[in-house]
Amino acid sequence: MPRLNHRLGALLLLVLVGALTPGCNVVRITLNTPLTPDDVAFIVPGQTTLLEVVDRLGSPDSINNSETGIVSVHRFLDMKYARVNFGWLAKPWSPVDPDLIFSRTGFGTDAFQVFYDSNGTVVQHSFLRHVIDRPFHPYPF
């Protein structure tokens, strides 16, 4: 009898997982290594140099002129996409192929800019956007 209960429990769990995840897609795309404020905490304006920044964070994606000297930009992306097709629940009983899709994409693009003086010492630094690390979330409303 306990073995039967175990099998029934496993079957119920399988049905529950199947019902909760009908036609689910979970996708993540990352470009370069996303940087956090902790990763750049070592940078001290007036002290840290371009070489030290490159040593810790890798070379930037672009370098340009700025009024004070130069500006380097580290770009990164952490895109999260989740999709659920509830139409799958009706598939066994429907003569057509029904779709009821909820999906949501969070692009999570950001860049870290560092301004240097003409000697290559950091003047100021900041993130372009302050991207919040959102969980996978298919609900679009």
Partner: peptide, 16 residues
């Protein structure tokens, strides 16, 4: 069958 997981990682080498 019911759930798909995908991950794309892109990284670049840069030399200045």
């Amino acid at each position: 069958i019911l759930i798909n997981f995908s991950r794309l990682s892109v990284k670049g080498d840069d030399l200045f």
